[in-house]
Every structure is written in C-alpha cells, then in structure tokens.
Nucleic acid binder design. Sequence first.
DNA 1: CAAAGTATTATGTACATACATAATACAATA
DNA 2: TATTGTATTATGTATGTACATAATACTTTG
Lengths: 233, 233
Amino acid sequence: MKVTEINSWQSVKAEVMRRIVERIWLPGDLVPNEVDLAEEFGVARATVNRAMRDLADAGLLERRRKAGTRVALNPTRKATLEIPITRLEVEQRGWIWRHAILEREESVAPVVVASRLGLPVDTPMLHVRSLHYANSHPFLYEDRWVNISAVKGICDVSFQTIDANEWLVQNATFTRGDISFSAANATAQEAELLEASVGAAIFVIDRTTWNGDIPVTVVRLAYAPGYRMHTEI
Amino acid sequence: MKVTEINSWQSVKAEVMRRIVERIWLPGDLVPNEVDLAEEFGVARATVNRAMRDLADAGLLERRRKAGTRVALNPTRKATLEIPITRLEVEQRGWIWRHAILEREESVAPVVVASRLGLPVDTPMLHVRSLHYANSHPFLYEDRWVNISAVKGICDVSFQTIDANEWLVQNATFTRGDISFSAANATAQEAELLEASVGAAIFVIDRTTWNGDIPVTVVRLAYAPGYRMHTEI
DNA sequence: CAAAGTATTATGTACATACATAATACAATA
DNA sequence: TATTGTATTATGTATGTACATAATACTTTG
C-alpha cells in the first residue's frame, strides 16, 4: 500500500522521480504514456503532463511526440544560476557595497568589441570601467561597452549613485544574451585594481546582450580572488 | 491593428515580454490580473497563466497570490546551464576523448570530505582520481569521493571503458546537488597533470550530490587552462 | 484601540474535453 | 523496390469550470 497519496502534479513528479532514482525505470526505458499513468495514479492527464513536462525541463526525461517519453540516457541536470546584481550580491553577504567609476568616455567601438557585437567599427559607444567594493575591499572589476543608440538616455546618467550594471538591468532590457565563465590570471592592471598579486586566478564572466537583433552591451566582469559562484540542482 | 494574433500561450508570452521590453509596463509595475488579460487577449485564463508562469520562471515577473503580478524590479535573468558529461562535451567539439584512471582505492573519508558530506570520518569511501584527454591533450582532472554504501555495485566497476562521472550519472541518480564554480591557480600536481605551468588559472567546479538525505559524491573538476563554460539566456 | 476573526481577491492547481501536431508504422502505388 | 500517401498514436495545447491557498483588507470583539 502506498504511504503517500498521489493527487497533485508535484506528487506525480515525486513518484516518477522515485521510480527513476530507484531504477524501477532504467535510463533509456520507455515509460508508460500519459493516459496510462493518469489512470494508474488516479489523476487527470493534464496533471501527469504538468509533472512530466517539469521533469523533462529538468533533463530527467526526454519526450517526443508519438515516440513517447523515455528516461534520459544521460540525465543532464540543468542548473539554473541567477545573474546577480553586484550590489545585492555583496549586500546579501552582509557587506557594505561601494562603487567607483574609473573611466567613462564615449568613443567608437574597438575592433574586438565591434566584431563581437556585429557592429561597424565606427559605431559610437560608451566605455565604462568601474570597481565594486565589498567592505572597502575590491570585489569586482567591470569593463563595459554600451551601444549608445540601443539604450536611450544613457548619456544623461552619471552612474554615481547606482552602477552601470544595475542601471542597465533596469533600463536596457534585453531579449537574449550570451554568457561565458572562465578563469584567467590577473594582469598587472587587474592585480593592482583588485589588490591581488599578478597572475592570481581570477573568475571571469563575459556577457553580451541583445535586444532583438540590436546589440546592447559587452561586459567583462573580473572578480577578486576567492570568488565562488554557487548554485543548487 | 495587431500584426500578430494572440491565440497561444507562446504568443501571450511574447506580447507580455514586448510590453516589458518596450517599457509599456515599467519595472515594479503591477500588471493586469490573469482574468483581465485573458479577456483582453481573447484566450482562456489557463493560457495566460501558462505564459505568466513561464516569464516568472525566467525572472521577468514576480507573482504572489492575492498581491498580483509585477514586472520584476531587478529582472534577474536566470541562466540555465547544463551539467555536461565530459566525454560528450569533448566529442561535441569534434575532439577525440580519452580517459585514464590515476588512482582508485577504497579508504575511509578524510575529514574535509566527511564534513562536507555530513558523514562520520570512518565511512568507507571510494577515491577515484582520473584525467580526461581531448585529442591527447589533458582536458580535465577529476578528483572524486564516492560514498560506497550509497551506490550499489560501484565496487565491481573498473571504470576502464566509461568514466566515473558517466557511470555515476547513469547509475547513482541523485535527487539534489550543490555546485560551485571558481578559479584557482594550478598546484604543482595539477600543473603537471594538465600540462600547464604552475599557477596557471584553472577553472574549477566543485560538486556535491545527495540522494534524498544520503550523501553520494563529492567531486572536484579542474579544467585545463583556456576552458570556458558557455550558456545563453 | 489592539487583537482576533472574516471577507475578499489574485494566483495556483485539478479536471474533462477537444483538437493540433509530430513522428511513426503501414499500406498503396508507380 | 523505392516512394508516396494515410492511419495511428503520444505528446502539446486550449478551454471552461471548479475549488484551494495565500495575502491582503476589513470588521468585529475584548
């Protein structure tokens, strides 16, 4: 007899997950179809569908019309990680956040930036370099290029009170983006800014964003040594 | 007049997204409730709900019962990144994957591992250290501890044909896990194994997994210099 | 007047039904 | 036999209704 009753999509999900985890359904196996499962569990098909869709999103199941649903051969778990706003990230750790602009000038896009965004090299852009502090210690060095024509009003913002990241996040909504994470040895400049030694391992995030087909920003975030990005799955 | 007709949850999502991106609905704004939107769009409430739930999952909306739905003040976009199987990751880049076991021995958990998993220090564990190659170049150094009692049959597996990661992914399904990403300077050992210079910046993933409350594995993945983890949002 | 209780409201979920769509299997045809 | 067409099937989605739940607003009561 069952200990837990199945009457919600969450419980269907839990039960299906149990069968996968306990290897009642093996990787690659075709699992019963929604109608049969609905009958077995005594719920509506829509409820089973909701649960199965959720598990497919998580990468535990693979579903294809007509072909049916299978336990994923390689249950590629998907971790969702939030792209944080630095101020909040620092404050959440109970530290005091501070921010300083190192440079802010309008100029044309350098080749490397222009090519990355797919823009002509003479596109007018805003270059902002800034440093974020946590409890007066350098936390993050931010090097950002903004496509001026894509973000209305950016030329009138001083970035003294809020930082570019935060302002852009609220004002330059983007429809899609591209992120990569890597490790790099600190350059002399980065080492000095982040109060680290030259060559120290630096966690780097490179992000490019678009609004539809219009490039918005390229930004490189270099974190002070010791930074960890964390998530759960 | 509308160019695109709204008749599916996808189109509702697109339209809501448009209103957010084009700042018709500003960050923090309370948006119309599901019933009203359903009426406006000429679809059922369930359809609106599906669209709105999707956008809330993506971090663009914030929803609370009774309080209603708001455009997220800080549209913290969530990036989903897939936890890859190294062999596939290498092969997808068109390289030839190879794998070598450096060490494989049963012993009790060292303090640092035991404490991380919340296990007593005398728990019998399997320690596997291995190296992944891409086109005969070192790609990833993997240092793994497995809770033997949590994974049936692991002692009978040699890991000659498939690697520990892949075997575990298929055989030691976990219900939850914990991942952190960081940058580290290569130790002498890591440098030698990865054919890098000592101190080179190494991208590191630390992962711990549980099956319910039972700890399964702790693993540290140290990637050869130049590795980038990539995702889209 | 403060605390406790109650009504209201927007989202969350369940269900039955219906039809759409993609992928497969099978039959018919050149 | 290869190809084209057709039936079948499992998932995908839309709808209307109903009730659950959480959070707020309001009212009653001590």
